[in-house]
Design a protein around this nucleic acid. Sequence first.
RNA 1: GAGGGCGUAGCUCAGUCGGUAGAGCAAAGGACUUUUAAUCCUUUGGUCCUGGGUUCGAGUCCCAGCGCCCUCACCA
Length: 526
Amino acid sequence: MNQPPSAADQPLTEDQLKDPRVARRDKLRRLREAGIDPWGARFDNRLMISAARELAGQIKYRTEAGQELDLPEISPDLDLRKWRGEQGPGEEIGPQVRVAGRIMLARDKGKLVFLTLRDWTGEIQIFIGKGQVGDENFDLTKLMDLGDLIGVDGRLGRTNTGELTVFAEKLHFLTKMLEPAPDKHAGLTDPELRQRMRYADLAFNDGVMKTFLDRTAIVRSVRRTLDTDGFCEVEGPTLHAIAGGAAARPFLTHHNALDMQLYLRIALELHLKRLMVGGIERVYELGRVYRNEGISPRHNPEFTMLEAYQAYGDYRTMMDLTERIVTNAIEAIGGGFKRKFGDVEIDFTPPFQRKTYAELFQTATGVDPVDVPAVMELAKSLGIETAGKHPDVIRNEIFEEKVEDSLVGPIFVIDYPASICPLTKRKADNPEIAERFEMFICGMELANAYTELNDPDLQEQLFMTQLEGMAEEDSMAKMDHDFVRALRYAMPPAGGLGIGIDRLVMILTGQRSIRDVVLFPLLRPE
RNA sequence: GAGGGCGUAGCUCAGUCGGUAGAGCAAAGGACUUUUAAUCCUUUGGUCCUGGGUUCGAGUCCCAGCGCCCUCACCA
């Protein structure tokens, strides 16, 4: 994609150079003329900027008598020049460092240039004095723009104001940026541009890198928690002949050789359960699922889901596991158990609250959830359509409207009405109640777990019931006969858990939109 | 899919009552060897999202379209 060395090699006029892109291209040309590769090369033995910053304690002031003094406490009003004067003649000494990164800010003082250099671990100031780096090397600064990548060899020290600085001795040009830099203070704020050009968002907007590195740390921690518990990570198929395990519209695709319609998976559940039948007693998958539904601050068509199944456990086993997954993830990124999300503070100090669906319903509405006539009346007063709907469905719509949004959490809502939980085992002493919990934080569903239904005949029957009255084209409305057959080979009693990883990352990193925790959210083509 | 908001310089944003466009940053030229959103002087830069309409005249008002954001709907 590189443009050939400027076709027009005649000198550009001053007016043409006022276009930032033209000016950058011209500097590219001048770099080549000076015999410098504008695209750089291998650059070994550099220190990460954060590691260089950790060497600050090695900076000393050596007096003429050879005494090495520690620098004074750094504070905003410190005048190091004055302090050095008070110590008598001498010089500052510090470790030799090599760093590399992107030029974020430049302060040109004529024969002296200050740069703010950033790599993925942090920022550090670079001091480039004409006398210190030599005329030829100093001329490089005339060819540098905001956003360029450079390497610096120099001595770590402090300026008169105490700012930790690499005093450059040698500059290395590493890569030219040809596009104009975003506003140096505000960065890129247009949400569309930020998502379309995530590279620029990461490079120029404060905090974006941190959020995505935190995401990685969270995912790593989730895996570590499960691995430590003896869970086995697997990779199930993403192309499904039947899209099951959840109720969502799937993406459709086609396999040519088999001439067969396929769906992108909408859940991980049914294949993981097959593996439990096979004897993988603790199994999980952390991967992408796809749902062909609307896009919102909480929904992206592809998102990352964790599902974990533990043989001989139940939903209470999964509650403990969920709590450990979340608290370990918090410890992995730091910041403590009390965290802000928007205006609310969430306290993750375990144990998390546990309340039954029925008691939350009763408290929020003042209506006994098993009193069907009262529930129907409440629904009417809320304007909820009741015709042709099962009372449990209506009750759940009320629950979603009156309870879920107000759950700050973290809270486990437990014991759901059985009829809305087709893959869940019923309570032994009450077939109306399913052993299920959902965990809510800030009105968002983050986790969903069951004591898994392992009765193949009941499972088959529930599938049938669920399919009744569903449009044929609703592709999820298809019986997964193989899954039922698998259950007939005996799936152990088990607890199963699903966690929306993107939403977990949102909550833990304080991001209000799922698009701020997904590197490349789905966008219309430009 | 419905409703609301937004779309102006490379970036961040102003733009009054309808009178042919403004700032900061970036860029170009100049001064400055301890600055830090450096500062100071000078200069340049516009398909006002697109297409229609009203009007003597539209960035501004009206209609349609496109894109983004928010709310709702959809989403076990």
